[in-house]
Write a protein that binds this DNA or RNA. Structure first.
Length: 804
DNA sequence: ATAGGGTTAG
């Protein structure tokens, strides 16, 4: 084809009429423009030829020229030509409308449309504008224009209906919409057109994937429409196949696919991407093989899907092979392939290589940017992610979502919620993933109320069947200690994955339901769900909190022997925690000595915490020494060590450690520190409340209050006591009530104030004593802290959560 | 001159 144009160009002189000659040339170019990558260069040379030969094209040639410029991304040239026509006809205008719409500029398209006088407007012109809107995701504008068209008595044709149906497919989210449309189409007599029926099937398909509609019912109707068509074209087949794929019914899709006589490339691609999406990597690769055997040549769509499969399965080398194949066969660089390549790199742990691919990419799109953003986020490189996010030339809802959940997963819940609110304010579409990120932020913050509100909004929007949102909710309720809610969400989720199971096991384990956590874990194994490394972390710490020492050791052992997951440092840390909490410190020490690699900070921290609880000063000092060597930040170690001494009654040594801290300029105050969570300032008083030093701490507290006032915070009477003497007596709130009452007296608490007592309680099962204590000190509310977790007593109810 | 299908980012 390309040669045909060139020969024709060379034989210019031999051609009779010059107008005819150009018309033929343009026609040829027009026919091949889909495949020719050098078409725009060729086109410019033809155009230049016209100008130098002094040929002034008549309108149809000019229109042709504009049209071809548009289709070869020469929009600038097209616009230039168009603007110089004194009175462009409707054909030229329609071309420009379509061109602007295709390049994402519906506003510019509308300008041309509005300037088109009613007297020359026609149905095609309207069709182009309606399509323009639906291509730019503005279904409402498309329909409005359709109504305008009817009002002005333009006769819609099958193209109009096809476009309007496409627009409606964007909006339809209820079964009734489909039924009504179906009737309207039948009445209009347009149902005889294949393209209209295809579009109607599309509406059913799109609507079926709406969370508010029944996918099964609607796909059934779509399928009925499909099989009742007198004859089906390629598009009918692919619409129905992809419809099933999109609605997660791969078996149904495969059935239709197998029934195709001549399987189209598009259909192969749809099946492959469907398998990849569902995580059926093997089936996807098998389809690729079958496709190859059937003599089909994989194109960029196929390669993109396969690359994505490789990324998910960690098949780095296969991925590289696909990349090599693409480089060999495709002359044009397809961004999507490179985007998938970026993902392959980072999912295989090569974040910086992913960035390199991105940097070398000449034409980047939103997906490229988002892929790199995800790379940084998932690698925990949150600062780079933040910078990259700010650098992005444009952001869609996905970019925001990635950033929100990234912040939440890296413990920056407050930032996550802030970003979510910004998103809401800016009117960016809030999808289920965005909610999932916000809910995770609440889980991180322990913001129970905000999280519950988000849950309500989630249900309102019909997102409650979303897997990611469901998982976020299970985690959130789990961390907040509302176990029943966590369980309910889990049970009502339409489908669950490993993350959901892990979340519920964690929820139970963290709140003293160790036995149930273990039972649930066993149930998961019975259902043949393969546990991952997170599952083992979760179940071992559940054992640790419930004191199920042998069970915990058992899981640690089978993790490698049965499930071939080699224990990481975090697993060892949980094991050490399990043993040291139970006071089996020497056993813990033995495990540390026999570890296959050098124990890191988390291991020694777990041991040190155990030493503090069980008053083993010697081992504690040894662990602390290791920690001083291993970590640059010594704050936590100092505090743990001081408390170990104090717990053993060695006040002088404890005081020495505190002095050491001050001397070394450790930022955290030895006796007291404060943080701001949401709008409340929480003050942490670290130290023994019965110790004479309490007066010193009290003075410090007053100083702190002044400081806070200066900074604009309004300090309330929410004090925090970290009482290490109660460490071992986990249910012994009442025995200390006297002592605490004295302290609160010292702090001159007004009656009925909120008291926040932060103690090292592991399991909160003692509501009775808590409420008894409350009435004794005339508190309205008590919050008891255990590490990052808190238990909240108020109005006769107890709830739990995470503090930061 | 206008329509309807397949890919990639969580």
């Amino acid at each position: 084809m390309k040669n045909a144009v060139k020969t024709s160009l060379q034989n210019q002189s031999a051609t009779g009429s010059i107008a005819n000659f150009y018309a033929v040339q343009l026609q040829l170019l027009c026919r091949e423009h889909k495949h020719a990558t050098s078409a725009s260069a060729l086109l410019r040379s033809i155009h230049a030829n016209m100008i130098t030969s002094g040929f002034s094209p008549r309108s149809h040639i000019l229109n042709n020229l504009i049209n071809i410029y548009c289709k070869n991304s020469g929009l600038v040239y097209a616009k230039h030509l168009f603007d110089r026509i004194p009175q462009p006809d409707v054909v030229a205008r329609t071309t420009m409308i379509a061109a602007y719409s295709a390049s994402g500029e519906p506003k510019l398209a509308r300008e041309v449309f509005d300037k088109t006088p009613l007297s020359i407007r026609d149905t095609v012109c309207y069709n182009a504008m309606i399509t323009g809107y639906s291509h730019n995701n503005d279904g409402h504008a498309a329909i409005k224009l359709f109504l305008d068209m009817r009002w002005k008595n333009f006769q819609p044709d099958e193209y109009t209906y096809t476009s309007v149906l496409a627009a409606l497919a964007l909006i339809a989210d209820h079964e009734m919409h489909c039924r009504q449309l179906h009737c309207a189409v039948a009445k209009s007599g347009m149902a005889n057109f294949k393209c209209v029926v295809n579009a109607l099937i599309s509406v059913y398909v799109r609507c079926a994937s709406s969370p508010l509609a029944s996918s099964l019912l609607l796909m059934d109707s779509a399928s009925k429409l499909f099989y009742e068509m007198p004859e089906r074209d390629d598009l009918s087949w692919t619409t129905i196949i992809t419809g099933y794929v999109k609605n997660d019914d791969l078996d149904a899709a495969r059935k239709v696919f197998d029934g195709m006589d001549e399987k189209l490339l598009v259909a192969w691609n749809a099946m492959i991407s469907g398998y990849v999406h569902k995580g059926f990597i093997f089936e996807a690769l098998d389809m690729l093989r079958k496709m190859y055997l059937a003599g089909m040549k994989p194109d960029e769509f196929t390669c993109t899907s396969i690359l994505s499969a490789c990324a998910d399965a960690g098949l780095f080398l296969l991925g590289k092979q696909v990349h090599a194949y693409v480089r060999r066969t495709e002359e044009k660089i397809h961004v999507s392939v490179y985007n998938a390549l970026i993902t392959l790199y980072w999912k295989c742990g090569r974040v910086d290589d992913a960035r390199k691919v991105f940097d070398n990419l000449v034409f980047k799109d939103l997906v490229s940017w988002n892929a790199v953003l995800s790379a940084y986020v998932s690698a925990g490189r949150i600062n780079e992610a933040k910078l990259f996010f700010d650098e992005m030339p444009e952001k869609n809802s996905l970019a925001w979502t990635v950033m929100i959940s990234g912040l939440a997963q890296n413990g920056l819940g407050e930032d996550g919620l802030k970003l979510f609110n910004q998103m809401r304010v800016k009117g960016i579409e809030l999808c289920d993933y965005a909610f999932a990120g916000a809910i995770t932020s609440c889980a991180v913050l322990g913001a129970l109320e905000t999280g519950c509100q988000l849950h309500a909004q989630l249900i309102q929007r019909g997102y409650d069947s979303s897997l990611s949102a469901g998982n976020a909710l299970v985690t959130f309720y789990g961390r907040s200690g509302v176990i029943e809610a966590a369980r309910n969400v889990f049970l009502t989720m339409p489908c669950v994955d490993l993350v959901s199971w892990n979340a519920l096991v964690a929820a139970l384990g963290q709140h003293g339901y160790g036995v149930q956590a273990v039972e649930l874990f066993e149930q998961m194994l019975d259902e043949n769900i393969m546990p991952d490394r997170i599952s083992f972390l979760t179940v071992i710490s559940a054992c640790s909190h419930a004191g199920l020492i042998e069970k915990g050791r058992h899981y640690f052992n089978i993790m490698h022997s049965v499930y071939k997951i080699s224990p990481g440092e975090d697993h060892y840390a949980r094991l050490i925690d399990l043993l040291s909490r139970a006071g089996r410190l020497l056993e813990a020490k033995e495990v540390i000595q026999n570890m296959p690699y050098k124990p890191g900070a988390p291991i020694w921290e777990a041991l040190l915490a155990g030493c503090r609880t069980h008053r083993n000063v010697d081992l504690g000092v040894e662990a602390a020494e290791q920690l001083f060597e291993l970590t640059p930040q010594h704050d936590g170690t100092y505090i743990l060590l001081a408390n170990t001494f104090a717990a053993a009654g060695r006040w002088d040594d404890a005081a020495k450690v505190r002095k050491l801290m001050r001397d070394q300029g450790v930022k955290k105050e030895p006796g007291c520190s404060w943080i701001k969570v949401e709008n409340t300032v929480h003050v942490f008083l670290v130290g023994d409340t019965a110790h004479p030093e309490i007066q010193v701490v009290y003075n410090y507290l007053e100083e702190l209050r002044l400081k806070m006032r200066k900074m604009g915070y309004v300090p309330d009477t929410q004090y925090v006591l970290h009482d290490m003497e109660t460490e071992q007596k986990e249910y012994a709130l009442s025995t200390h009530s006297e002592k605490l009452a004295v302290v609160f007296g010292l702090l001159k608490l007004p009656r009925g104030a909120t008291i926040r007592v932060f103690k090292n309680l592991r399991i909160c099962g003692d509501c009775h004593n808590a409420f008894k204590f409350m009435s004794k000190v005339e508190a309205r509310e008590i919050i008891v802290r255990d590490g990052n977790r808190f238990h909240h007593f108020r109005d006769g109810e107890c709830s739990c959560g995470n503090y930061w």
